[in-house]
């Protein structure tokens, strides 16, 4: 169990916010499990332990096959908690490397879809991006820094370093902000979400780099800003209680706007 989470749980809340908490709990608990519309989410790797007599793993069992039969209960032993009712899900600890690559790629694609086609009226937006990964944030931050430094005429490296530091620390501070507001969001989940929501802005930056007209730039940045904010809105607003929604959303929007200004004003 992460330390951050415990901190968040014990974060002192004002007594008057109890109603908020109740509302939030109702909000969280109300959707029963089957109603979740997890969009094309691959099931998490099931934490089952393989029976050691399995022969499905060429890399692991290159040595002599075991002659001893193992205890049958070994197969159902689960490390680190329950498997979440996945039954006899395929074991992923001995899978070929290619399967791991494919699973991670499909996860990135599904996470990206959530942001590219945002749907604030999704039934359970809080559950989205549950399968977080940090590839998206990493790539988008680096791409954004690259496009900014390319479009900058002087001191390209400083621009890149400043853009990277701004975006990375910005994402971390925003995440801290959400969790300090008593939000039900995990640090990495939020980091992943904020990073994926940079995707439209990155697109906008690339378009701005190619076009020189200032009017087109402003229009493109405004559109992509709205797109990014629209994508980030459902996640952040369900993470915190309704009364503090604005407090959590405002800094996010502020960071995106400042990035937009950076894109317009870079040359």
């Amino acid at each position: 169990m992460s330390v951050k989470h415990e901190e968040r749980d014990t974060a002192p809340l004002h007594p008057s916010s109890q109603s908020d908490i109740d509302d939030l709990e109702i909000l969280i608990n109300s959707p029963p499990y089957p109603s979740s519309v997890l969009p094309a989410q691959p099931p998490p790797p099931p934490p089952t332990i393989p029976i050691s007599t399995t022969t499905s793993s060429p890399p692991l069992l290159k040595s002599t096959p075991p002659t001893k039969s193992t205890v049958p209960s070994n197969s159902s032993r689960v490390v680190g908690g329950g498997g979440g009712g996945f039954g006899s899900a395929p074991n992923t600890l001995t899978e070929p490397v290619w399967d791991t690559v494919k699973r991670d790629l499909s996860r990135i694609v599904s996470n990206l879809k959530l942001v590219v086609f945002p749907n604030p009226f999704r039934e359970d937006p809080g559950k989205a991006l549950r399968d977080w990964d940090l590839w998206g944030p990493f790539f988008f931050i680096v791409f954004l820094g690259l496009t900014l430094s390319w479009s900058a005429s002087v001191r390209k490296s400083e621009v890149f370093a400043v853009a990277f530091a701004l975006l990375a620390t910005g994402a971390i501070i925003l995440t801290l902000n959400v969790s300090l507001l008593g939000g039900h969001i995990i640090f990495f989940q939020s980091l992943s979400l904020l990073g994926y929501c940079l995707f439209p802005i990155t697109l906008g930056a690339i378009i701005c780099m190619l076009k020189d007209s200032i009017i087109i730039k402003i229009v493109v940045v405004c559109v992509t800003l709205a797109w990014s904010a629209w994508a980030a809105y459902p996640f952040i607003s369900t993470a915190v209680s309704p009364r503090r929604k604005a407090l959590a959303l405002y800094p996010v929007f502020l960071m995106y706007v400042s990035v937009g200004f950076l894109i317009i004003a870079i040359d």
């Binding site: 169990m1 992460s2 951050k4 989470h5 969280i28 934490p47 332990i49 490390v79 680190g80 908690g81 600890l93 809080g126 559950k127 039900h184 969001i185 995990i186 640090f187 990495f188 989940q189």
Partner: peptide, 8 residues
Amino acid sequence: GESVWRFE
């Protein structure tokens, strides 16, 4: 919505 560290 809780974060769980899994060790396999």
